[in-house]
Write a protein that binds this DNA or RNA. Structure first.
Lengths: 223, 223
DNA sequence: TAGATTGTTAATCGATTAACAATC
DNA sequence: TAGATTGTTAATCGATTAACAATC
């Protein structure tokens, strides 16, 4: 069914943030070119991405309706559902995830939280009480948890992941620095923050190289 | 120069985490197949990625030396440098970034932190004092900040980004939900956490669709 | 109408996978 | 040696870009 590839899904989720901002500012309509300029890609790619949505965008020579396009994206990306999410590892990062990520706005809700530390177990995070990680399989089944964010120390990560799988969790957003071994029926999305910094640093050096290469070729081949 | 494409750089940074873990566990050597199994891709892709490193891996029919390969990756990704990093927006997320991301292990160091809140300005984060965001341009120049993590509220994000650009910052790791407008000489890497959850949810539905499609075709075409 | 814009197909580009000779 | 493994080139696959008829 959903023939939305991963690169396209990534961009669609980011378009959605842009569309919401525009909508809040009162913009009713925009063209593929305008969205491309805001996002930093090409109008052609924007149209191709929208073309992959089951419902397309809107009308012909007036561009897209901001709100309708947003709804199309939500629908296509499965945000009509209400998926239950657990946060495992309620240290600084886990707490941040639980408190500051607006899951409710995107078809998800925080439905459980786990930790092993006695000072943290029993405290409250938003609408849930932090339970001990030994209860992961039971509570996940009870609450029908579908997705989990993993923000434990590296040492526990694989064991916790195994427990989540036992609990019937289908997707893990992995912030730990270990590569999880999971059955084929469960997907992980890696979000090691340090890798973000590394990739950024590489992009910056790349930019410098390009720039000096350009300068060089400008020198070598005078127009 | 650096003909390392972005997909390859992403994987290399993740290989590096795996290699460090193996090294700590005492593994001295591994083959492209072993790394592929751990990472979840193909041996061919691992070899292709390593082939793109200026220094290759190591020796012939014995696989790669774990530590040397790690060093090669570090070198290729520019971690020999010591890049100065600033965190802007020292709320929960910013504090987490400053305190828990092991920048020092990857050729970076926290060299400045900024916020606008009176209660936060003047406090200490690791080795730096949090300064008021109005001082961003000056302090960034002083401290030669190259990279910044942006974890402010959405409303301030663009203004802060402009200030960072004025301060000579070359790369921004953007955790805010706004798409930054930046000159061509500055790169951004978007890390909106909510998009991570959305993409994970999409992957999960995709998996379900595949599974039911498989079941269907199993039914339709008996072997 | 003329101009702008989409939807969609075709062409190009880049990234992944396959293949295999060389090596130990 | 035989078997395993790399380095590297070639083939395939998928994603991006270009093109353009249809539409208002």
């Amino acid at each position: 069914m959903s023939r939305i590839t991963n690169p396209t899904a990534k961009r669609l989720s980011e378009y959605l943030l842009i569309l919401e901002r525009l909508s809040a500012q009162g913009t009713r309509t925009l063209s593929s070119r305008e969205l491309a300029d805001l996002y930093g890609n090409t109008a052609s790619q924007v149209r191709q991405d929208i073309f992959s949505l089951p419902r397309g965008g809107e009308s012909d020579p007036y561009g897209y309706d901001v709100d309708k396009l947003g709804l199309s994206i939500r629908h296509a990306l499965g945000m009509d559902a209400l998926r239950s999410v657990a946060v495992v590892g309620c240290g600084r990062l886990g707490t941040t995830l639980a408190l500051h990520v607006p899951l409710e706005d995107y078809g998800m809700k925080l439905a459980a939280a786990f930790d092993v530390h006695p000072d943290i177990v029993g405290t409250r995070l938003k609408d849930v009480h932090v339970e001990h990680s030994v209860h992961i399989p039971r509570v996940c089944r009870q609450e029908q948890i579908e997705l989990a964010a993993l923000s434990t120390p590296a040492e526990e990560a694989q064991k916790i992941a195994d427990a989540l799988v036992h609990g019937g969790v289908k997707g893990i957003l992995n912030f730990t620095r270990v590569q999880l071994r999971l059955p084929d029926s469960v997907v992980a999305e890696n979000r090691q923050i340090v890798c973000g910094f590394i990739q950024l640093a590489h992009k910056v050096s790349d930019l410098n190289n390009d720039a000096s290469a350009d300068a060089l070729s400008d020198r070598d081949m005078p127009s």
